[in-house]
Write a protein that binds this DNA or RNA. Structure first.
Lengths: 238, 238
DNA sequence: CACGTTTGCGTTCATAGAGTTCACGGCTGA
DNA sequence: TCAGCCGTGAACTCTATGAACGCAAACGTG
């Protein structure tokens, strides 16, 4: 590869704790390096300007769309207008479909919904690295196929392998229920909301605990065995 | 079949003959309408401004990157900075990989190399229509899956020929059954209605999911493994 | 402080549908 | 006519789910 081996990443995230976590995960991915974190659009813009001026433009920006001083997509547009070429992965809890659409037109390469497992972030980064590698070769595309291939690598989703006995849609459903619940939920309550049995809900909740996306907390006070509740561990500050 | 609300297209192309040809092809695609052509960046910008001011913003722009008064990607950035949401298909003979990369970061939804067959343009337009339909539903994404699906529909390149093992008439039959069913169908039910086995029905339903024409949704509640149901994705913008 | 009560956890297992493999029959081209 | 390929479906294995049930943990009462 003619390119610099490492991909320089800027993490833009409102919540300092989440920012730290993201930065750590990025640095752990082979070939990636976190070169900075920013907690606001202003900081992010300044960082990118400085990096570019220093001749080390940021390759990839992990961008939370919810920022204290403006919307992330607005920052995207500002960046593009200023000629910044940094690729952007939107990392956000914004689930509105119109936002997704706007993100695409603003030139976001991927759109990652919070909360996500560390493995998911890794998979996306790996995918981005492959996309980049496929276009790093200087020169010209041999044909439409090669262009299509680059797009496909970037955009096709690769199902991460789940433990036996678990299915992706159910996991999605349970995770969503847990995220949208304010406070914590018992397995039974989560089951009802997700439309599955307590047993199934518990299975997936335990998986979420295993992967670090949820935490268990017993709830005492009532007569009988304490109720075991689950709470989404928020990777977002929003 | 009730068609989607029409998608308004602006053709931006330096060469008047090619512009005419593109406009014609676009108008022939069901659901698409050419609302104008422009032969320069200035004209294009003016047209988009006027259309937006008139309350009929252009949905999609077919943009040649080589324009007499500037580069198409620069026009992209200008548009984004001005808050234009029009989606853009780059139509160009520029084969440089760096240009492809820049196009992605400028928010181009597809990148079509000239010269191309009319069928190729059609396929891309159809794909864009599906992407649009998948995000037209107001509301929120149920999860990462749905977002990924939208990206995949947009970016996966589709061979005009069906995958091995599938036949056009059967696909037609299964698709029709699914369209006419109110609500969702299990593979078995679809098979019965289409007059094929569950296995065959499943094959074609999966293909429909891959191409973004259908969605899967598990149905819980009964004892035993959950039933996996398929639902035709609504192509009409409500 | 010990013991019963109460409540929900956690496990085991039957079940029904998913998903895969492979053999058959028909069509096509030589 | 024969050879090869392609779409189909039967048989089979696998997997995700929920019902049943015993057990664990905290509270209440003496």
């Amino acid at each position: 590869m003619t390119r610099a081996a490492t991909i320089d990443v800027l993490v833009v995230e409102d919540d300092p704790v989440a920012a730290e976590a993201h930065a750590l995960h990025v640095s752990r991915a082979p070939g990636f390096r976190t070169v900075g974190t920013a907690h606001s659009a202003t900081q992010a813009l300044r960082f990118l300007e400085n990096a570019r001026a220093a001749g080390r433009p940021v390759d990839l920006t992990l961008l939370d769309l919810h920022l204290p001083d403006g919307h992330g997509l607005q920052l995207c547009r500002t960046l593009r207008a200023a000629g910044h070429g940094t690729d952007i992965i939107a990392v956000t809890s914004a689930r509105e479909l119109t936002t997704v659409r706007q993100a695409v037109s603003a030139g976001v390469v991927q759109y990652l919904l919070k909360p996500f497992a560390a493995a998911t972030l890794h998979e996306r980064l790996d995918r981005y690295a492959r996309y980049r590698a496929s276009l790093a070769r200087t020169g010209e595309a041999t044909g439409q196929d090669e262009v299509d291939q680059a797009f496909a690598v970037l955009r096709t989703s690769e199902r991460s392998t789940l433990p036996k006995g678990l299915s992706a849609p159910t996991l999605e459903a349970v995770a969503t229920v847990l995220q949208h619940a304010d406070g914590s939920l018992s397995a039974a309550a989560a089951g009802v909301r997700a439309g599955v049995s307590r047993i199934t809900a518990r299975r997936y909740l335990e998986h979420l605990v295993d992967t670090g996306l949820a935490v268990r907390e017993p709830r005492y006070g009532q007569v009988g065995r304490p109720e075991l509740c689950y709470r989404a561990r928020n990777m977002s500050g929003s």
